[in-house]
Each structure stands twice: as structure tokens, then as C-alpha cells.
């Protein structure tokens, strides 16, 4: 409990930083007076534009933290990550098709459905190639993921070049590729919050199964799990969470790797404690990185995916080096 409270405090600090950061920095005093509803123009801008975006960043981060934790649990590998495994790339392809191909469907449901199908399909492909049975080894998993992610990236670029004659859509798709939180309206924000609650609830239902799977497939079976059925269910839930994260935040690399790692270190390996911790850490990371993205090159905005990759890349290499040495 103390562990979770400290993480909540860290998230609050990250939210405050996110709310202050930008090409026009807001002081803590300005933030407090805006929150108390002083009605000035600056406060209104803060409340209408910046705060929803900061909250959206935190919620997308929570989704990435949960998605990463589920994927690491299913693959039984601490280097598994939705971005590296091509799941995010799959979701982005789905989103690209929904936006650029005239399917005759309403954009909202088509975007959600195709993002999910893309994430799910790409994850299954990696699982099938890297070895569904037994414990997929790190090299096989990452190589399969890198190959699939590269192919999906090329396909996405091709679709963008071939199909786009509408500059607005192209811009949206491009922002997806680089990762970036859009400022949502109230309905969008509430929907995202609902998605995070659903994601957390369904992740927690997987907690015991993920714990058992961590003992190895054979031992998990002996302890009363049907591993094949469970893996199918967990991949379905993980793909749904990744698709939601991609739909709102685009391709944000490495958060799904770092958050579960820190969560395991902070709360231990049992998933009932580690999943909420990973969501909170993911939320804090994306919130802080989104603040940096807005503040570092004013008045321009650096893509969020670039910031997370700059921090996350070295972290990943460090983990990989440690694992290879072991």
C-alpha cells in the first residue's frame, strides 16, 4: 500500500510538471489559481488546452504500462515490448487503413476495430514465429519483432504515399508514426479514462495466470492453468490495450518496456501488485515526457515518441547487455 501511495505521489508530481511545462511555462502559483477557477484568460487556456492534454498523456501512459506488463508476462521475457514486437506497428497499420482507405464505415469504429485487429494480428505473427511453445528466447523474439515491425513500417509508409490526397489525414497519420498526444475534448477524455479503467480491471483478472505462467508453461499447467487458452486470452486483452494506446498516442516507444521493469523492481514480480504499479509508472513517464516534448524547443513541439526513445533506448540497451552477459 505504501508502495502504491508513493507511486501516486510521483504521478502527481509528473502531472504538475506536465501542466507547468510548455513554451509558456506556468508557475505553481498560476497553476493553483487556475485550478481554483480564477477565470483569467491564461487560466482558461491552461484548463481548456493544457490540462486535458496532460491527463490524456497520463492515461495513454497507463495503457502503455499495462500493455507492456501483459506482453512481458505472456512472453515470459522482460525485453518484450509492444513497440519492439510490432504490436504497436500493427495497430498503426490498422489506424492508417481506417483513415486513408475509403471503407464506407464511420471513422471512429473503423479506427478502433482495425487498430485492434492490427495489433492482435502482428502479436500472433511474432508469437507464431518466435515459438508459441516453450519459453521463446530473447534473440528469437526480438528478431521476429524487429522484422515484423520493419515490414509493417514499410507497408504503412507505402499506404501513406499511395493513398493520401487529403493533407489533414496525412498529418494525423504522420503524428501517429512519431508518437504524440492530441488534446482531446471532454468526451474523448472520458472515453479514454473509461478505457483505462476497463484495461486495469481486465489486466487484474489476468494477474494470477500471468504469475503462474512466470513459473514456466509446464509448471503453470500443473498448477491448474490451461496455458494455451490463457495465452490466447491475454494476447487478446494486451492487443486491445495497445490498440487503445496507439489510437490516442500513436507509436510511443519503450514506455511499455521501462514501466513494467520499474514496477517489478518497486512492487515485486506478483502481477496483482505489479500491474497497477506499471500503469502508474507508465502514466508518470508519458506525462513527464510529453511536458518535455512541449517545452524543449519552443514554440515547436518535439514528437513524444522521440523523447521516449531518447530515454528508453539506452535503458533497453543496458537491459539487453545485462541479459546477454548473464
Amino acid at each position: 500500500m505504501k508502495n502504491i501511495l508513493l507511486l501516486l505521489l510521483a504521478l502527481l508530481l509528473a502531472l504538475a510538471f506536465g501542466a507547468m511545462a510548455g513554451h509558456d511555462w506556468a508557475s505553481p502559483a498560476r497553476l493553483v489559481s487556475a485550478l481554483s477557477g480564477d477565470g483569467s484568460l491564461q487560466s482558461q487556456l491552461l484548463m481548456v488546452w493544457r490540462l486535458p492534454r496532460v491527463l490524456a498523456a497520463a492515461l495513454v501512459g497507463a495503457l502503455l504500462g499495462l500493455g507492456g506488463a501483459i506482453f512481458q508476462g505472456v512472453f515470459r521475457n522482460p525485453l518484450a515490448e509492444p513497440y519492439l514486437l510490432g504490436s504497436s506497428g500493427g495497430a498503426a497499420i490498422g489506424a492508417t487503413v481506417a483513415l486513408l482507405v475509403p471503407l464506407g464505415l464511420p471513422v471512429g469504429p473503423a479506427l478502433a476495430g482495425l487498430s485492434f485487429l492490427g495489433a492482435w494480428g502482428a502479436t500472433w505473427l511474432v508469437l507464431a514465429i518466435a515459438g508459441l511453445h516453450g519459453r521463446p528466447d530473447t534473440a528469437g523474439l526480438l528478431l521476429a519483432g524487429v522484422a515484423i515491425a520493419a515490414m509493417l513500417g514499410a507497408l504503412r509508409s507505402f499506404l501513406m504515399l499511395a493513398l493520401s490526397d487529403d493533407t489533414v489525414n496525412l498529418q494525423v497519420v504522420l503524428s501517429w508514426t512519431l508518437g504524440g498526444i492530441q488534446t482531446p475534448d471532454m468526451t474523448g477524455l472520458l472515453l479514454l479514462a473509461g478505457l483505462v479503467i476497463a484495461a486495469l480491471a481486465s489486466s487484474l483478472r489476468l494477474a494470477r495466470g500471468l504469475d503462474l505462467l512466470g513459473l514456466g508453461e509446464e509448471q503453470a499447467f500443473a498448477f491448474g492453468l490451461d496455458p494455451q487458452r490463457f495465452i490466447k486470452l491475454a494476447v487478446l486483452v494486451g492487443a486491445g490495450i495497445v490498440a487503445a494506446a496507439v489510437a490516442y498516442g500513436g507509436l510511443v516507444a519503450f514506455v511499455g518496456l521501462i514501466a513494467p521493469h520499474l514496477a517489478r523492481w518497486w512492487a515485486g514480480p506478483r502481477h496483482a501488485a505489479m500491474l497497477p504499479a506499471s500503469a502508474l509508472i507508465g502514466a508518470a513517464i508519458v506525462c513527464a515526457c510529453d511536458g518535455i516534448a512541449r517545452a524543449v524547443l519552443p514554440p515547436a513541439e518535439v514528437p513524444l515518441g522521440l523523447i521516449t526513445a531518447l530515454f528508453g533506448g539506452p535503458f533497453f540497451l543496458l537491459l539487453l547487455a545485462r541479459r546477454l552477459r548473464a
Binding site: 521475457n77 519459453r135 512466470g214 513459473l215 514456466g216 509446464e218 499447467f221 514480480p269 506478483r270
Partner: peptide, 16 residues
Amino acid sequence: YLPQQLEPAWNYSVEE
């Protein structure tokens, strides 16, 4: 079922 040896993916404690 008691295996020959166990290699957990995560560093569980005895209690866990």
C-alpha cells in the same frame, strides 16, 4: 507435478 528443475521467468520469493 514436481519438475526436475524450475526456471521461473521472474525472480519470485520463496513465499510467493
